[in-house]
Simulated scan of single mutants.
Amino acid sequence: MAEHNDKGKEAEDLVKAWLSGRGYEFVEANYRSGHAEIDLIFKHKGILVFVEVKYRSGTGFGYAEEFVDSTKRKLLIKAADNFVHERDWHKDIRFDIIGVYRDQKGNLNFRQFEDAFY
């Protein structure tokens, strides 16, 4: 597996633990539908939350939310629609982007953008 894939998987695992510690209920990881993949899916306060995880070793090239373009958003929405249909979900949904940043000292920081798009 390529190094960027390893870091992406590690970031997803870190976000899964981080959100679980904040009261989110884990549902599924790496849900695929067609060409789209939803990194993480959680339930939180009666809402189904679809999470796109972005790892950055710094902010020199921009923040996580800047790397989810309109094409990516459309794919995520389509995949989420399929998931909602498969699970017969009739409550609210939300799309979050969570950036995982490693500072110069190697410390990890999380930046969550709730209801980032739709």
Rank of each mutant, 00 (worst) to 15 (best):
V84L: 01
A80W: 03
V68L: 08
F42P: 12
F83G: 00
G106A: 05
G60V: 07
N30M: 01
L75A: 09
V68G: 03
Y24V: 11
K91C: 04
Q104H: 03
A80C: 00
E28Q: 14
S57Y: 08
E86D: 05
R94L: 04
L14M: 15
E37L: 09
V68Y: 07
V51D: 05
I41T: 08
D69Q: 05
G46E: 12
L40W: 02
V27Q: 10
A36M: 12
V27W: 00
S20E: 13
Q112M: 12
F95G: 01
K78V: 02
H85L: 10
D6H: 07
F26G: 03
G34V: 11
E12N: 07
D39E: 09
R56Y: 03
K78Y: 00
F110P: 06
W89G: 02
E66G: 06
S70P: 02
G21K: 05
L48G: 00
S33C: 10
H44L: 05
A116I: 14
D92N: 09
F61G: 13
K78P: 00
R111C: 04
G106F: 02
T59E: 14
L108I: 15
K105I: 04
V84K: 09
S70N: 14
A116Q: 14
R22T: 00
G99E: 14
Q112H: 12
I97H: 06
R22F: 00
K7E: 12
G58F: 03
A36C: 11
E12T: 03
L108K: 07
A79G: 04
R87N: 08
V68E: 09
V51I: 13
F110H: 10
E3Y: 10
H35I: 15
D6E: 15
G58L: 03
K105F: 07
L75V: 03
V27S: 01
K54P: 09
R22Y: 00
A2Y: 03
S57A: 14
A11E: 12
L40K: 06
H85K: 14
E86F: 01
E114I: 11
D13E: 15
Y118N: 02
A116P: 15
H90R: 15
E28C: 02
Y24T: 08
R111K: 15
D96L: 02
R87A: 06
Y55K: 13
K105H: 06
R111M: 13
F50E: 04
L76D: 11
G62T: 13
F61M: 11
F42H: 07
D39S: 05
S20Q: 13
A36I: 12
A116K: 14
H44T: 07
E12D: 05
R87G: 00
H44V: 07
D92C: 01
V53K: 04
G23M: 08
G21P: 03
V100A: 04
G60R: 13
F113I: 15
F61A: 13
R111N: 09
V68W: 06
V51M: 07
L40S: 04
